[in-house]
Design a protein around this nucleic acid. Structure first.
Lengths: 251, 251
DNA sequence: CCCGTCATACTACCATACCAATACCGGTCC
DNA sequence: GGACCGGTATTGGTATGGTAGTATGACGGG
């Protein structure tokens, strides 16, 4: 279950990284209780580093610490996912826009190479590898605009959203479509077409709305009992559906 | 120096809040070393809660923890400020845009009332109160779109930027202009004019570029020895200056 | 006079022990 | 039979001691 850790290096960051991955990949299920003592035992460490890992997880909205009661993996919340998606869209649309201005040809080549690899992987069943390349793609965009802080925010948003994707695999949006969207974004950046880059990114990041409601119904025990916030509700189902299947319309 | 804390409540969050405020308000100067033991003594607590406060401060980029060496208040970094500003602009422009769609008349009235109060305070010398109302204004926008996560990101960005503002007070951009910009944003939202709301917010958040270079020269000991990142450099001085004095052009 | 070396005084980090508050469960009373 | 109640186990929060690693400065050799 838990990979080996290096007892010489700092323990807290390692424990944090392991738990974070386990939560995102749904190996630790929403609602599950995490005991400081138990986790510490699994890692062969004391409670202190585990506690620090919990605090960092709580900051990212992956666990909830209830004083004197327990620490729990947060259930998937429509509100939390939509909120995270909102800020992610904001930052990543701005990133795409700025890419059009400052990305070098070398940057674009590097990003394009990632997509080539992702295309190859998309054919296989290896979902893990596919999502890793998805992460590399979005990371590369942030690197092209030279903004570390942007990536950290995007990463946080991705965490909430990826949990949904791990839940919905292998169905939902076909991987080939996602790669196509990625390609459209890079093409727009290469053309220095800000409007297209922004709109294509927007469409790409709203895909999640297509699968989300059905998943919530399908797994009521894994979802918080809440509803979409205002900023997400304003997107009617019709609008979302139209966006989801009209990538070419903006290209 | 340190305000009293409630020994019954959890100590770590209180210590965190106090230190955070002290750093932003430049009572703890950039570069200064923070000793776990010493801070613990000042608060009458043990080192453990102080350590947790340090970790949270490090996440927000306000201190830097060097293992086995010490924890230091980060110097003001042109890169860090510009990066934080970039994501803040992204999120807050998106917030303003969404406000145009979902903000109710009541929301707008509430925000407008904040500006009335800020107008009154702007005349006085009370910079602390002015900045508190600035915070309330931007917070109210995030509340109108019903996105908690957005506010947290904005808050983080504000921390880096407010430190600069505390350094530059009382000069730089006159407070009256800032309030005017606030008012322009609300007016645009009330008119449901997305483009104007976004552009006005953009201009507002780029004001900091006007004072930043001069401050860095003026206080070399308080600034990290780095330069603006790509995404900020692409804004030439001319462009920034033009934006800074052309609020009415977009209104 | 300058440079390498070692003792010392810090540091953050981890482990352990203790505390207060909450949840759970068995018994008791209505 | 159901509702209340108290003992007990477990939780996160805090305090404290110990460890490994790093800067510093004094000392001794070149």
């Amino acid at each position: 279950m838990v990979a080996a850790i290096d007892p010489a290096a700092a323990l807290a960051p390692q424990i944090y990284a392991q738990l974070r991955a386990s939560i995102i990949q749904m190996r630790l299920m929403p609602g599950q209780a995490l005991s400081e003592k138990e986790i510490a035992g699994q890692f062969g460490a004391s409670r202190q580093p585990v506690r620090e890992a919990f605090i960092k997880l709580a900051e990212g909205g992956l666990v909830r610490i209830l004083p004197q009661r327990g620490t729990f993996v947060v259930k998937i919340s429509l509100r939390a996912v939509a909120d995270a998606r909102f800020v992610r869209e904001a930052v990543e649309v701005a990133t795409a826009r700025t890419c059009c201005r400052v990305a070098t040809e070398k940057d674009i080549a590097r990003i394009s190479a990632i997509l080539d690899e992702q295309e190859r992987v998309a054919a296989r069943a290896d979902n893990q590898a596919f999502l890793a390349l998805d992460e590399r793609f979005h990371h590369a965009l942030a690197e092209a605009v030279d903004c570390e802080a942007a990536w950290r925010v995007i990463e946080n948003g991705k965490a909430q959203m990826d949990r949904v994707r791990y839940l919905s695999l292998p169905g939902a949006t076909p991987r080939s479509l996602l790669v196509e969207q990625h390609r459209s974004i890079v093409d727009a950046i290469a053309r220095r077409d800000e409007r297209a880059a922004m709109e294509t990114m927007r469409v790409h990041l709203r895909e999640i709305f297509l699968a989300l409601p059905a998943l919530a119904e399908q797994h009521p025990d894994l979802f918080e009992n809440d509803s979409l916030p205002l900023h997400a509700e304003e997107m009617s189902h019709a609008t979302i559906a139209a966006l989801g299947s009209s990538v070419s319309a903006v290209g």
